[in-house]
Amino acid sequence: MKHNLDKLSAIFNRYPQNRESLIAVLQDIQKEYHYLPEEALQATAKTLDVPLSKVFSVATFYNAFSHYPRGEKIIRICVGTTCHIRGAHLVQEQLENRLNIKAGSTTKDLKYTLETVNCVGACSQAPVVIVNNKYYGHVKVSDAKKLLRSK
């Protein structure tokens, strides 16, 4: 996939160009493109003067980074302890079945991405599902359909 990499230089310019900025730069790239395109990783390595292997190592170590394009609608299921004991795994399974994908992947039509997240600190609303940054609390198994339709 070809990308408009013009936005990269703006991201690089936000930080001092050294190793310490690596994670911040990758986060901004992730925010911009919703994943880390290969070309962007290569450009990052070059600009920050960090070996490509190290960039890749960091990019695959941390959960926050994805390496494939993500869907229009990103559904994140909180699987923190509280959400778990209040049935988050059941909600997860529902969503997985409905979308026919496992958590951590994207539907083929690039409509939905299903992800899990370890606690978003909204435990009083458990179980919590976040759809494109909007929080849904006290989610029930039967809410799966509603979540998929939500904006």
């Binding site: 699987v79 923190g80 302890t81 509280t82 370890n118 606690c119 600190g121 909204a122 435990c123």
Partner: peptide
């Protein structure tokens, strides 16, 4: 880096 799931004091 309040990583413990179920904790949000530091966040607050």
């Amino acid at each position: 880096d309040e990583g413990d799931p179920g904790a949000f004091m530091d966040r607050a």
